[in-house]
Protein backbone atom coordinates (compact mmCIF):
# COMPACT_ATOMS: atom_id res chain seq x y z
CA UNK A 1 0.00 0.00 0.00
CA UNK A 2 1.89 3.03 -1.25
CA UNK A 3 1.22 6.59 -2.32
CA UNK A 4 2.26 5.53 -5.85
CA UNK A 5 -0.96 3.58 -6.42
CA UNK A 6 -3.14 5.82 -4.31
CA UNK A 7 -2.61 3.76 -1.15
CA UNK A 8 -4.77 1.02 -2.64
CA UNK A 9 -4.18 -2.57 -1.62
CA UNK A 10 -3.85 -5.15 -4.45
CA UNK A 11 -7.46 -6.23 -3.90
CA UNK A 12 -8.71 -2.63 -3.94
CA UNK A 13 -6.65 -1.93 -7.04
CA UNK A 14 -8.32 -4.89 -8.76
CA UNK A 15 -11.80 -3.68 -7.77
CA UNK A 16 -10.95 -0.16 -8.96
CA UNK A 17 -9.72 -1.60 -12.25
CA UNK A 18 -12.88 -3.65 -12.83
CA UNK A 19 -15.08 -0.70 -11.90
CA UNK A 20 -13.26 1.41 -14.51
CA UNK A 21 -14.21 -1.20 -17.11
CA UNK A 22 -17.86 -0.47 -16.33
CA UNK A 23 -18.56 -3.70 -14.49
CA UNK A 24 -21.44 -3.54 -12.03
CA UNK A 25 -20.96 -4.16 -8.32
CA UNK A 26 -22.63 -7.56 -8.65
CA UNK A 27 -20.38 -8.53 -11.57
CA UNK A 28 -17.24 -7.51 -9.67
CA UNK A 29 -18.49 -9.41 -6.63
CA UNK A 30 -19.01 -12.53 -8.74
CA UNK A 31 -15.59 -12.15 -10.38
CA UNK A 32 -13.81 -11.84 -7.04
CA UNK A 33 -16.04 -14.19 -5.11
CA UNK A 34 -17.25 -11.61 -2.60
CA UNK A 35 -20.61 -10.05 -1.83
CA UNK A 36 -22.03 -6.97 -3.54
CA UNK A 37 -22.20 -5.28 -0.15
CA UNK A 38 -18.47 -5.82 0.32
CA UNK A 39 -17.83 -4.28 -3.10
CA UNK A 40 -20.02 -1.31 -2.20
CA UNK A 41 -18.01 -0.81 0.98
CA UNK A 42 -14.76 -1.20 -0.96
CA UNK A 43 -15.90 1.54 -3.38
CA UNK A 44 -16.18 3.99 -0.50
CA UNK A 45 -12.71 3.12 0.80
CA UNK A 46 -11.20 3.26 -2.71
CA UNK A 47 -12.76 6.67 -3.43
CA UNK A 48 -11.44 8.04 -0.17
CA UNK A 49 -7.93 6.73 -0.82
CA UNK A 50 -7.77 7.90 -4.44
CA UNK A 51 -9.05 11.32 -3.41
CA UNK A 52 -6.43 11.51 -0.68
CA UNK A 53 -3.67 10.60 -3.15
CA UNK A 54 -4.81 13.33 -5.56
CA UNK A 55 -5.03 15.88 -2.74
CA UNK A 56 -1.51 15.07 -1.64
CA UNK A 57 -0.21 15.18 -5.22
CA UNK A 58 -1.81 18.60 -5.64
CA UNK A 59 -0.39 19.84 -2.36
CA UNK A 60 3.12 18.54 -3.07
CA UNK A 61 3.19 20.08 -6.55
CA UNK A 62 1.38 23.31 -5.61
CA UNK A 63 -1.58 22.67 -7.92
CA UNK A 64 -5.05 24.13 -7.73
CA UNK A 65 -7.61 21.36 -8.14
CA UNK A 66 -10.39 21.90 -10.67
CA UNK A 67 -12.08 18.51 -11.03
CA UNK A 68 -11.35 14.99 -9.85
CA UNK A 69 -12.62 11.84 -11.54
CA UNK A 70 -12.17 9.16 -8.90
CA UNK A 71 -13.39 6.31 -11.12
CA UNK A 72 -11.08 7.05 -14.05
CA UNK A 73 -8.22 8.23 -11.83
CA UNK A 74 -7.78 11.61 -13.48
CA UNK A 75 -7.53 15.05 -11.87
CA UNK A 76 -7.73 18.34 -13.75
CA UNK A 77 -5.78 21.09 -12.06
CA UNK A 78 -3.96 24.34 -12.66
CA UNK A 79 -0.36 25.16 -11.90
CA UNK A 80 -0.12 28.76 -10.66
CA UNK A 81 3.69 28.55 -10.81
CA UNK A 82 3.68 27.95 -14.59
CA UNK A 83 0.19 29.31 -15.22
CA UNK A 84 -0.78 26.27 -17.28
CA UNK A 85 -3.39 23.51 -16.96
CA UNK A 86 -2.24 20.21 -15.50
CA UNK A 87 -3.64 16.69 -15.62
CA UNK A 88 -2.74 14.22 -12.88
CA UNK A 89 -3.33 10.57 -13.73
CA UNK A 90 -3.43 7.55 -11.48
CA UNK A 91 -3.07 4.05 -12.87
CA UNK A 92 -2.00 0.61 -11.76
CA UNK A 93 0.86 0.44 -14.25
CA UNK A 94 2.32 3.92 -13.85
CA UNK A 95 1.04 5.17 -10.53
CA UNK A 96 0.60 8.92 -10.16
CA UNK A 97 1.82 10.98 -13.11
CA UNK A 98 1.59 14.69 -13.73
CA UNK A 99 1.06 16.00 -17.25
CA UNK A 100 1.70 19.67 -17.89
CA UNK A 101 -0.33 21.03 -20.80
CA UNK A 102 1.90 23.19 -22.95
CA UNK A 103 3.62 23.11 -26.32
CA UNK A 104 6.28 20.52 -25.61
CA UNK A 105 8.76 19.22 -28.16
CA UNK A 106 9.37 15.50 -28.15
CA UNK A 107 11.71 15.54 -31.15
CA UNK A 108 14.55 17.01 -29.10
CA UNK A 109 13.77 14.97 -25.96
CA UNK A 110 15.78 11.87 -25.06
CA UNK A 111 12.89 10.54 -22.95
CA UNK A 112 10.56 10.16 -25.90
CA UNK A 113 10.46 6.35 -25.90
CA UNK A 114 9.96 6.17 -22.11
CA UNK A 115 7.02 8.56 -22.39
CA UNK A 116 5.57 6.53 -25.24
CA UNK A 117 5.79 3.32 -23.19
CA UNK A 118 4.07 5.01 -20.26
CA UNK A 119 1.28 6.35 -22.46
CA UNK A 120 0.75 3.06 -24.28
CA UNK A 121 0.35 1.24 -20.99
CA UNK A 122 -2.01 3.99 -19.76
CA UNK A 123 -4.15 3.54 -22.89
CA UNK A 124 -4.11 -0.24 -22.52
CA UNK A 125 -5.13 -0.08 -18.87
CA UNK A 126 -7.93 2.38 -19.62
CA UNK A 127 -9.24 0.21 -22.47
CA UNK A 128 -8.39 2.87 -25.07
CA UNK A 129 -7.61 1.46 -28.51
CA UNK A 130 -4.94 3.53 -30.22
CA UNK A 131 -5.45 3.81 -33.96
CA UNK A 132 -2.61 3.96 -36.50
CA UNK A 133 -2.50 7.77 -36.48
CA UNK A 134 -2.35 7.89 -32.70
CA UNK A 135 0.42 5.32 -32.62
CA UNK A 136 2.55 7.60 -34.79
CA UNK A 137 1.85 10.70 -32.70
CA UNK A 138 4.50 12.33 -30.59
CA UNK A 139 4.05 11.43 -26.91
CA UNK A 140 3.01 14.99 -26.00
CA UNK A 141 0.13 14.77 -28.47
CA UNK A 142 -0.69 11.20 -27.53
CA UNK A 143 -0.96 12.26 -23.88
CA UNK A 144 -3.59 14.83 -24.71
CA UNK A 145 -5.44 12.26 -26.85
CA UNK A 146 -5.59 9.90 -23.89
CA UNK A 147 -6.20 12.30 -21.01
CA UNK A 148 -7.98 15.02 -22.95
CA UNK A 149 -11.13 12.91 -22.98
CA UNK A 150 -11.40 13.36 -19.22
CA UNK A 151 -11.17 17.14 -19.41
CA UNK A 152 -14.32 19.12 -18.72
CA UNK A 153 -13.46 22.18 -20.81
Amino acid sequence: MTFRVGYLTPRETRIWELRRHNLSQSDIGRELGISRQAIHKAYQIIDKKVEQAFMEAAETNNLLIKTVNLVEGVMNAHSPAYDIPVIVSLSKSNGLKIWYLYEGNCKSCHLQSSCRNILESEARERGIQLNATEQLMQPTQLAIEIFGRYQDD
Binding site: I84, W99, L111, I144
Partner: peptide, 21 residues
Protein backbone atom coordinates in the same frame (compact mmCIF):
# COMPACT_ATOMS: atom_id res chain seq x y z
CA UNK B 1 -3.28 23.33 -26.18
CA UNK B 2 -2.81 19.96 -27.79
CA UNK B 3 0.31 18.83 -25.98
CA UNK B 4 1.01 17.37 -22.55
CA UNK B 5 4.42 16.64 -21.06
CA UNK B 6 5.33 14.98 -17.75
CA UNK B 7 7.89 17.73 -17.17
CA UNK B 8 7.06 21.32 -16.36
CA UNK B 9 8.25 24.01 -18.81
CA UNK B 10 11.98 24.55 -18.41
CA UNK B 11 12.37 21.69 -15.92
CA UNK B 12 15.68 19.83 -16.10
CA UNK B 13 14.89 16.33 -17.34
CA UNK B 14 16.53 13.31 -15.71
CA UNK B 15 18.65 10.87 -17.71
CA UNK B 16 15.78 8.38 -17.68
CA UNK B 17 12.34 7.93 -16.18
CA UNK B 18 11.19 4.68 -14.60
CA UNK B 19 8.81 2.72 -16.79
CA UNK B 20 6.86 -0.19 -15.46
CA UNK B 21 7.42 -2.61 -18.30
Amino acid sequence: INNACPFAPGEVKPRSIPVNS
